[in-house]
Simulated scan of single mutants.
Amino acid sequence: MQDQGAYKITPTDQSGLIVIVATLFMTWMVLVTLIRLYMRLTMNGPLGVDDLAAFIACVLGVTNVGTIMNSISHGLGRLPEGDFESQIESAEKALYAADLFFLAGHCVAKMSICLLLRRLGREKMYLLFCKALLVVLSLWGVASILVTALKCNLTRPWTLMHKVTCPGVDTRWKAITSFDVLTEAFLLALSVYLVWSVQMSNKRKAAVIFAFAARASVIIVIIIRQVYLNDAFDSDTLMLSISDSVVTTEIVLHYSIMTATVPCLKPFVIAFNTGWGQGIRRKGGYYAQSTGSAFQSSASRGQIESVAEDERVIMPSTDSELVIHETREWAIETESIKMQPMSREGNFI
């Protein structure tokens, strides 16, 4: 077994590269998920089903890295030689489990985005599209896991196989990747549809779309991953040649989970607040949102008077109205000066 501290990056040993990428992206992903939890609890809560899905994806992502590290310790990313040949089966089993955790985590991250989109909208047709996409994502996740788990040799499904030993193994991954890209496009289309009929500035619409479009870059990495997989399936040294696809797999998984949190950041919520009933935190406190009169408070005469202007944007809906608030506040100070009458000599009385 390889020494845990002997990870290298050489033409015949890519274990070091896999370790660096996997642990680095996992660390970023965990930090972003913790930020999401903090913001939901203190700023723009309450917690929803979309947050639960993101937290589950985080756990699956950490588990994926754990299995990858186990596989590396048994020879993943290196040419089998010497005593390492007896460790190949253990490496294959761990990589097999890592692939299943990858598909599950990536699918749940997608569902988190879709659940968040559903949480923001009210229009019936829009909600119907969200539910339909949730069903599609669920079916894609289950089908992808089954196709990956049940390979040609059902007695040893964890064995790495190329096109000769298992015809169609590359076709399976191509189908998974195709639907993966397609569902990403549907998520982006839903975000556009969300703000298409909302009466607000184009700048704010662009901010909403950009928050969800951050996932668009993951499509490029998904395609690159598939290219690396195609090359690996043509090789007879799969333990080494599959290294590039493992690296891109880790990037896809953790970036997918991280971008599921981007739309939850405070600037986005302020730009597109749908009145979840929790208010917005400002200057250390919360102010309630109202669909009726403007938020106003005033002090006694001679003190500071606060006036708020409430701008509302209405999204048409058959059941209710979706209200987006923008509140501006001014502080007006008044000062009273008492004048005394003057005598004819010009002195104050």
Rank of each mutant, 00 (worst) to 15 (best):
C152H: 02
D236A: 07
C114M: 03
T148N: 13
P341A: 09
L160D: 05
G5P: 01
R215A: 01
P46H: 13
F210V: 01
L240E: 00
V32C: 03
D13H: 07
F55W: 08
F84M: 15
S297Q: 14
L133N: 04
N153S: 09
G16Y: 06
V135T: 11
I72W: 00
M239T: 13
Q226R: 08
A308R: 15
A109W: 04
T148M: 04
C107H: 03
G75I: 07
E305R: 11
M342E: 09
H254P: 00
W276C: 06
P167K: 02
D3Y: 00
A299E: 15
F295H: 12
L133I: 06
M239P: 03
C107I: 04
H162T: 11
M1E: 01
Y38H: 03
F268Q: 01
I304S: 09
G105C: 07
D244V: 01
D180G: 12
Q87N: 04
T12D: 15
Y287N: 10
R122N: 13
F101G: 03
V192K: 12
E89V: 13
G105V: 02
Y7I: 00
K151H: 06
M339Y: 13
A132L: 12
A288I: 15
T10C: 09
Y126N: 00
S343I: 07
D180A: 02
F268E: 03
E309P: 03
L120A: 12
D310E: 15
G284P: 11
V192Y: 14
R40V: 10
N44R: 12
W330P: 09
L120R: 06
M258I: 12
I20G: 11
C166I: 03
R78Y: 07
D310K: 14
K174F: 10
H162W: 09
T10F: 14
L190N: 02
T12H: 11
T291F: 14
E321W: 11
L150S: 06
C130H: 05
C152W: 06
P157M: 07
Y126A: 03
G75P: 00
V136A: 05
A109E: 03
I222F: 05
C107P: 06
A104G: 08
S243Y: 05
L240Y: 01
L17H: 10
E345Q: 04
P316H: 09
W196F: 15
N230K: 07
V307F: 10
C130G: 07
F102V: 02
T63I: 10
A294I: 08
Y7G: 03
L34E: 00
T12M: 13
E345C: 08
R40Y: 05
I219T: 10
N347C: 00
